[in-house]
């Protein structure tokens, strides 16, 4: 990993932390207010690609685990990693990786539609696929109950996937970071 990648990874971990401090936005018709933190998960994958995106989220979670309260809920420390919703946290690096992997596949023809595909699959399907069974196992409740509990968050997450896609497309135009191996390397 080049030193520039270290910088991208650390700065994106910082972005995810800062997004967690944004006040939650209540959206009409959506039961729970939207927090911006998982927007950071989607943006990490969409902007940095699979490897660096996943590492940024691993780093973020490491800093949380070390006892810095950076989660949107104001929580931190090891407690959140053994709590009933820990599965959602564990899913973040995987989600960023999947989003990044898909984004790299779509990179040449990347637009709002492809961005949405990547963010809906990685940012919603993957996160729920890990978070729901984890809660079910951990809290000793049926899978269906765990899934129903998660339903309240789906509309907010769809809004975030759209937002992340709009932002990712604009950032790609202004400052593309993902470099495909075949593209000519830029110096400097």
């Amino acid at each position: 990993m080049k030193t520039r990648d270290l910088a991208y990874v650390a700065l994106f971990a910082a972005i995810v932390a800062v997004l967690g401090q944004f006040p939650p936005v209540p959206v009409p018709g959506i039961p729970v207010p939207i927090t911006a933190q998982t927007l950071g998960v989607m943006l990490a994958g969409s902007v940095l690609g699979a490897r660096r995106g996943a590492l940024a989220l691993l780093l973020f979670l490491t800093v949380v685990a070390l006892g810095v309260p950076l989660l949107a809920s104001g929580a931190g420390g090891l407690g959140v990693f053994v709590g009933p919703t820990a599965g959602y946290l564990y899913s973040w690096p995987v989600a960023a990786f999947v989003i990044g992997w898909l984004t790299e596949r779509f990179w040449r023809r990347y637009n709002l539609a492809w961005a949405l595909v990547a963010n809906l699959i990685g940012g919603i399907a993957v996160i729920y696929a890990i978070g729901i069974p984890f809660t079910s196992l951990y809290a000793d409740i049926p899978l269906s109950a765990s899934a129903v509990g998660a339903l309240a968050f789906v509309p907010g997450d769809v809004v975030k996937a759209v937002a992340a896609s709009v932002v990712a497309v604009a950032v790609r135009r202004a400052y593309p970071v993902i470099e495909l191996p075949t593209r000519r390397a830029t110096a400097g």
């Binding site: 080049k2 030193t3 520039r4 990648d5 270290l6 910088a7 991208y8 650390a10 700065l11 994106f12 910082a14 972005i15 944004f22 936005v25 911006a36 927007l39 943006l43 902007v47 937002a163 709009v166 932002v167 604009a170 950032v171 202004a174 400052y175 970071v177």
Partner: peptide
Amino acid sequence: RLGLLVPLLVQVLQLAHTLGEALDARGAD
């Protein structure tokens, strides 16, 4: 908030670029 995110990300990516150089200049690689 979306209008905030695009300039913020671009600024941070530029910062990361220089930070990468600074890490090199200070012997991190």
